[in-house]
Design a protein around this nucleic acid. Structure first.
Lengths: 126, 126
DNA sequence: ATTATTGCAAAGATTTTGCATCACC
DNA sequence: GGTGATGCAAAATCTTTGCAATAAT
C-alpha cells in the first residue's frame, strides 16, 4: 500500500507550480534548494510514479530528454523548431479522438498533440 | 555539399519498407544482414540526418527510446498503454492546426498526435 | 584534390536499480 | 513490526562524437 513522503509531496508541488515543462534534473535542482539531501534517483522514481498514476504527463520536446508536466487537464503544446521554446495551448477540444476511433482497431482513451512551427521570436529570421 | 552513400540509401530503404516504427538499434540489426560492417554510429548519424531533412519522423512511443518512421505523409499513431503496440491511423485531417493557431503566439507548420488506449488484444482484460 | 561519410571505440548523457537505512501506517 | 520510500552509488541504456581511413564528387 502506498505511503506518503515529503519528497513526493514536494515533487508534485513543484510540478504544479511551474509551466516550463522541466526535465527530471530541473526538478531535482529546484527541490534541492529546500531539501538538499534529496537524491536524483528519488526524483526519477517519483516522476515515473506520478506519470503512471496519471498525475503528470511525460513529454517529448525534441532534445532527447524526458520532460514533465504537472498539469494534466487537456491541453496542447507548441514547440518552436528553431529555438525549442514550448508554449501551452489551451483551447476547446476538437473531436479528433472520435474521428480517429473510426480508423483504429482499439479503444482510444486519450491523446496528445504536439504542434511545431516558429515562435514569434524566430519567425522573422527565416 | 551532401554526398551519397550506400549506407544512407539502405537506411532510407529500410525505413520505407517497414511499418513497425523501429529504434536505431532495430534498423542497425536489420541492415547488418546485408551490410555486416555498418556501424551503429552510422545508423544513428543517418537517422538524425533524415529526421532533420524531413525524410523521417522521430517518435516517442513510451519506452524511453527514440523510434523512427520513414513514412512522412500525414498520419497518426495509436499506442496501446498496456502492451505498447503501435498502430498507424490514416484519416482525413481535422483542421486542428487552424484552431490551435488562434490560441498560440507563433506560426504552426505541422503537428503530431499520439492516441492512447487499449488495443483489441488488451481491452478485454481490463 | 577536396570533403562528406564511414567504422570503430571511447565518451557522454540520461535513466534505472540494488541495497542498507529510514519513515509511515 | 511490516513494508514502502529514500539516499547513495554503481550499473545499465541509449546516443553522440573524435579520429583516421575511405569513398563520392
Amino acid at each position: 500500500m502506498e505511503k506518503r513522503s515529503l519528497q513526493r509531496d514536494l515533487i508534485k508541488q513543484n510540478l504544479a507550480s511551474r509551466y516550463d515543462h522541466p526535465t527530471a534534473d530541473m526538478v531535482y535542482s529546484s527541490i534541492r534548494e529546500d531539501l538538499p539531501n534529496i537524491s536524483l534517483g528519488t526524483v526519477y522514481r517519483n516522476l515515473r510514479f506520478l506519470v503512471e498514476h496519471g498525475e503528470a504527463l511525460s513529454l517529448k520536446l525534441g532534445d532527447g530528454r524526458e520532460h514533465f508536466d504537472g498539469h494534466v487537464e487537456p491541453h496542447y503544446h507548441f514547440i518552436c523548431t528553431k529555438c525549442g521554446a514550448v508554449e501551452d495551448i489551451f483551447m476547446k477540444e476538437i473531436p479528433i479522438c472520435e474521428e480517429a476511433a473510426k480508423h483504429c482497431s482499439g479503444t482510444i482513451t486519450g491523446h496528445h498533440t504536439y504542434f511545431y512551427g516558429f515562435c514569434n521570436n524566430c519567425k522573422s529570421d527565416n
